[in-house]
């Protein structure tokens, strides 16, 4: 199965810029389906980025984060070829993770 996580991490000088896009419905629990029934809440609660065994960013999200969430940030260090691990967990206990190479 293809990963739900897409990431682009580029090392530039002293820091690494990370952009990531995750496939997830991020259902708020307030939207009805075509039959008029509420779609239950389903959203990512925690997203973690790790480099060299150290967390470089933790995101806590609620149902107000848009569908197929996008995030951009940068951290000091990281060089081309280093591994960056991304993992998320949602409110239904589902999760996914991916280890990408910094470019």
């Amino acid at each position: 199965m293809p990963s739900t996580i897409r990431v682009r991490a580029i090392a530039g000088g002293t820091s690494t810029e990370v952009q990531s896009l995750i496939q997830h419905p991020m259902d708020s629990g307030f939207i009805k389906d075509s039959t008029g029934k509420l779609i239950p809440p389903h959203y990512i609660e925690e997203l973690v980025f790790e480099h060299a065994g150290k967390k470089v960013l933790t995101a806590f999200w609620g149902p107000a984060v848009s569908k197929d969430p996008y995030i951009k940030f940068s951290f000091q260090g990281g060089k081309k070829g280093d591994e960056l691990k991304i993992s998320w967990t949602d409110n239904l206990g589902k999760s996914d993770s991916l280890t990408a190479k910094i470019g």
Partner: peptide, 20 residues
Amino acid sequence: IAASYTFPAGTAPSIACRLK
């Protein structure tokens, strides 16, 4: 609360995302 981010030392205090 829409989103809350934790920044370890070394991570730039800057973030972009998309909200509802």
